[in-house]
C-alpha cells in the first residue's frame, strides 16, 4: 500500500470516529426525541403525528410552568451556595495556603467525594438531616433545641443542601484553575499603584477569575437542573423537579410525546445557558478592559 491512501485512511479515522460518535450518540437520540415530541398520546400508547399540542400543553397547563420555575429556583440556589462556599475556599488554596502538602490535601478532600456513588452521598444526607438524625441529636445534646425538629429533611432546603454538597467540586475546580492562572505580579503591581487588598481583589483578581466562575456556575446549574435523585431521596411533597416529571411521563403516564417535548424544552434552556456562559468566558479571556 502506498503512503497516500494510508494517510487518507488515517485522516478518515481521525475525523470519522468523532463524527460517527456525535451522530450515533448525540444527533440520533436527539432526533428521536424531537420526533416523539410531535407525536400524540392515544390509548393504549401514542401514535405518530405532526402537531404542536404537547408544547402548547407545556406552556398552558400551569403544572409544568410551576415545576420549571421551581427547578430554575433550586438550581440557581445550588449554584449560588456552591459559589459562596467554593470561591473563598479556592482563593485560600491558591493565595493563602503556604504549605503545598496541605493544599494538595484540601484539594483532594473536595474531589474525593466524586469517587463515591452519587446515590450513596445523597442517601447519607437523609441520616444527617432526619428527625432522628445526626444534626438533630447534635442540636439536642448541645441544648440548642429541646425537641427533634422535622424542618431539615423532606423539603427544598434539604434538596439545596444535598445538591450543593454533591456538585460543589464542579465549582471549586474551574475557579481554582482560573485563580491559579493569574500572574502574581499583577496584584503586586496593583499594590504598588496604591490599591488596598480589597480593591485589588475587586478590580484585578475577581475579574480575571470570572471565566472560572462562569464555568462553575454553568456546570453546577446544569447538573442540578437535570437532577431527579435528590427530590426522590430528600425532597418533600413540594420537591418535584422537571426531570421527575419527565420520568413520570415516560413511566406512569405512558405519554412519551409529552415527556419528549419537556425534554426538548429543558435541552433548549440548558443550551442557552451554556452558550451564554461561553460568551461570558470568551469575553473574560479576551480581556474586557
Amino acid at each position: 500500500m502506498s503512503a497516500a491512501p494510508r494517510r487518507n485512511l488515517a485522516g478518515a479515522l481521525i475525523l470519522g470516529i468523532p463524527i460517527l460518535w456525535i451522530l450515533v450518540f448525540m444527533l440520533l437520540p436527539y432526533g428521536i426525541i424531537v420526533t416523539y415530541s410531535f407525536w400524540i398520546k392515544k390509548y393504549p400508547s401514542f401514535m405518530p403525528a405532526f402537531q404542536l399540542g404537547n408544547y402548547v400543553t407545556l406552556f398552558t397547563d400551569p403544572q409544568y410552568l410551576q415545576v420549571m420555575a421551581r427547578t430554575l429556583k433550586i438550581s440557581t440556589l445550588v449554584s449560588l451556595c456552591s459559589f459562596a462556599l467554593a470561591y473563598p475556599f479556592a482563593y485560600y488554596l491558591v493565595f493563602r495556603c503556604r504549605s503545598q502538602a496541605l493544599r494538595t490535601w484540601l484539594y483532594m478532600a473536595v474531589i474525593a467525594p466524586l469517587w463515591v456513588s452519587y446515590l450513596l452521598r445523597a442517601y447519607v444526607w437523609k441520616t444527617i438531616l432526619g428527625t432522628e438524625g445526626i444534626l438533630n441529636s447534635f442540636l439536642i445534646s448541645t441544648g440548642i433545641i429541646a425537641e427533634p425538629s422535622p424542618v431539615f429533611l423532606y423539603n427544598q432546603f434539604a434538596m439545596v443542601v444535598t445538591l450543593t454538597y454533591i456538585f460543589i467540586p464542579f465549582m471549586v475546580m474551574p475557579i481554582y484553575t482560573a485563580l491559579e492562572k493569574i500572574p502574581r505580579n499583577l496584584s503586586e503591581a496593583s499594590a504598588d499603584l496604591g490599591m488596598g487588598p480589597w480593591r485589588t481583589f475587586l478590580h484585578v483578581t475577581l475579574p480575571l477569575s470570572m471565566p472560572g466562575v462562569a464555568a462553575g456556575f454553568t456546570l453546577t446549574f446544569c447538573l442540578s437542573f437535570g437532577d431527579f435523585v435528590a427530590p426522590f431521596l430528600v425532597g418533600g411533597p413540594d420537591g418535584n423537579l422537571v426531570a421527575n416529571v419527565i420520568a413520570t411521563q415516560f413511566g406512569a403516564a405512558l405519554n412519551w410525546p409529552l415527556g419528549s417535548a419537556l425534554a426538548i424544552v429543558m435541552l433548549i434552556i440548558v443550551l442557552s445557558i451554556v452558550s451564554l456562559s461561553d460568551r461570558l468566558e470568551s469575553r473574560g479571556n479576551g480581556g474586557e478592559f
Partner: peptide
C-alpha cells in the same frame, strides 16, 4: 390529576 397535585 395526580401529577398536578405533585407539581404544585
Amino acid at each position: 390529576a395526580w401529577n398536578a397535585v405533585k407539581a404544585q
